[in-house]
Design a protein around this nucleic acid. Structure first.
Lengths: 181, 181
DNA sequence: GTCTATATACAGATAGAC
DNA sequence: GTCTATCTGTATATAGAC
């Protein structure tokens, strides 16, 4: 696991942030370089093209998902509750990367769409033995998708319709109960 | 209710289709004009700016939502089942418009985001008296959001993880049961 | 490793002919 | 109502200096 240069990570952070808060269109190489505090030439040393920049983001996401799968299987509240609860976090590292990649996917980037499908399958596989049926699995996955979608629509962290606090507890309760069969 | 010129509707159809199948970035005025079979000047006669084109799409969506709310309240299977079931249709007029507008919203278009939030509230208000609790309402809304999100990721109609046939029946059953309390 | 300067392409929009 | 031609800004990418 070689440690990537810091400037490279800063560029990736800036690209991700722009995608999440202003959308694919605003996340240009120029804007990304400016937000990362480097010149366009500096950015292009680390990522030779827009495509390389996007691929860098996909690799970051895959690494974060692996870590999350580990945490999920070790969760004391159980994988289903963990999964639903963590789908609503908007300033988490993983969730920011996930929303950023979903912006790329909706912009037509084929690799981003494929990555999201693969990731969704991995989560579903990890949850399958903890739910009563395929319909229950569909339910859990769709609630999670819904939370992400709402999250993605808010963008920069403006309060939205996503349940928090007691409302989230109640949602987790009703979903886990329905999922147990 | 004055009938809009046919060419205008064709332009709107093309813009919507480009947004859904290729994303916001590809849905340029040039590409839209070409897809609609008119020149750029022809398009600009009907919609004087990109913003006017986007506003035209929002107006179309609002009209389609009004019709859907009427159908929902008249549904024999019940509003909740109707709502969940129809959230998965990918080539329906309403769903195409909804996905197209969500593409705009994710691209940072403020009015598109506000429209989606308003529409979501109207659906929630229509469902509230048919579910046992606010948590149940959250559940139903989030499953619907999840279905739309998956739909939106497929884009051009490629088969995805959205439940169909018997799997959809099972999902509707488990959601309506959970929503009854 | 990071910079400036520049080439090429395409976006949204205007002017005005038919 | 629909067209062509054209202006201006900005996107990605290259070349090469420091």
């Amino acid at each position: 696991m070689s440690r990537p240069p810091r400037a490279r990570e800063l560029v990736l952070d800036a690209f991700e942030r722009l995608l999440v808060t202003e959308g694919e269109r605003a996340a240009t190489m120029d804007a990304t370089a400016r937000a990362a505090g480097v010149s366009k030439g500096g950015l292009l040393y680390h990522f030779g093209s827009k495509d390389a920049l996007e691929t860098g983001l996909l690799e970051r996401l895959h690494a974060l998902v692996e870590e999350d799968l580990d945490r999920m299987s070790a969760s004391t509240e159980g994988p289903v509750a963990y999964f639903v609860r963590t789908s609503a976090m908007s300033d988490d590292t993983l969730d920011r990367a996930l929303v950023a990649v979903s912006r790329l996917a909706q912009g037509g980037h084929a690799a981003a769409g494929a990555a999201l499908r693969t990731i969704r399958d991995r989560w579903a596989d990890a949850l399958r033995s903890h739910v009563a049926s395929e319909a229950a699995l569909d339910l859990v996955m769709l609630v999670s998708d819904g939370l992400y979608f709402n999250n993605a629509l808010e963008g920069d962290g403006v309060a939205g319709p996503t349940p928090t606090g007691a409302a989230m507890d109640a949602l987790v309760e009703i979903v886990t109960r329905a999922a147990r069969g």
